[in-house]
Amino acid sequence: MKAMTEVNSVGSARKSFDPIFERGLKFVAILVMSLLILIIFFLYQLAAPAIHEYGWGFMFKSDWNPAKLIFGAYPFIHGTLITSLFALALSVPVSIGTALFLTEIASRQVAAVIGFLVELLAAIPSVVYGLWGLTVLAPRVRVTVQPWLSEHLSFIPGFSGMPYGVGVFSASIVLAIMITPTITSIAREVFRAVPHAQREAALAIGATHSEMIWLSVVRVSWSGVFGAVVLGLGRALGETMAVTMLIGNRNEVANSLFSPAQTMASLIANEYPEATNPLHIGALAYIGLILFGISFIVQGLARRIVNRVANPSGGGA
């Protein structure tokens, strides 16, 4: 009898803790959501003068002159997209190749070591990438790479121009290195999700190893790999520190891969500390909102794709 009541009392004490615990979790979740909404609201308030002044047309105007209080976001949207896309073009083949090597070719030990090293790339602080880019990469781009490319590829528009070292090209290379771990590790998960039975099916009909990789792995992984790439794009779009150090900070539409330019993030990092006029601050905040919007859409899209691949039976969620 006594034992019974003891058990009951413990049970009820534990039960009465449940609602507190659940409420606590709910509170934290709501807190995070409110923060997001608050940040958007704060940005919007800050941006309001520029939004009222320019409306949507802001995104298509090319002049940016704080001294004359003329503002247009186009060069920075252009700069962001061009550096991010060029970074993708460099990173995607390397990342997917690495992911395939790690899942399909490397032994378990080799894959563990290389996989770890690739993930370490993600642990290097952005500012360190920037320093490396400025001191090691940019001088070489100026002295060696760009002259060579200009000489041999100058018939392609975008491969000519003055050699500055810093600019879209250098920023994209560093960005490419920075997003490679992201794309590699997600592509690796996608390839790893391919059932062993699929690989055996290919081998059993007499596929070679590379045919097996194509038939059983690559062919069914398009959408997952696409998700990985879009996630890498999401990272590249918002990256600030390293790009600010390497992009050359010129507020004009880049007319060559080697031009100095400006991204949305680097512009804000450069000008916000010195901006005093509300319209200038507003224009910067407006650009922040646009960047946020683009990142939000890109990340959301990528998450959806990656989730659908990771749990295909998840009811399309």
Binding site: Q198, I205, L215
Partner: peptide, 20 residues
């Protein structure tokens, strides 16, 4: 071994047609 597998077929426990 690839040539060997072309002349000796194999069917597995779980059906494994190629998706897609």
């Amino acid at each position: 071994p690839v040539a060997v597998r072309r002349s000796i077929g194999m069917v597995f426990q779980k059906p494994n047609p190629f998706p897609g």
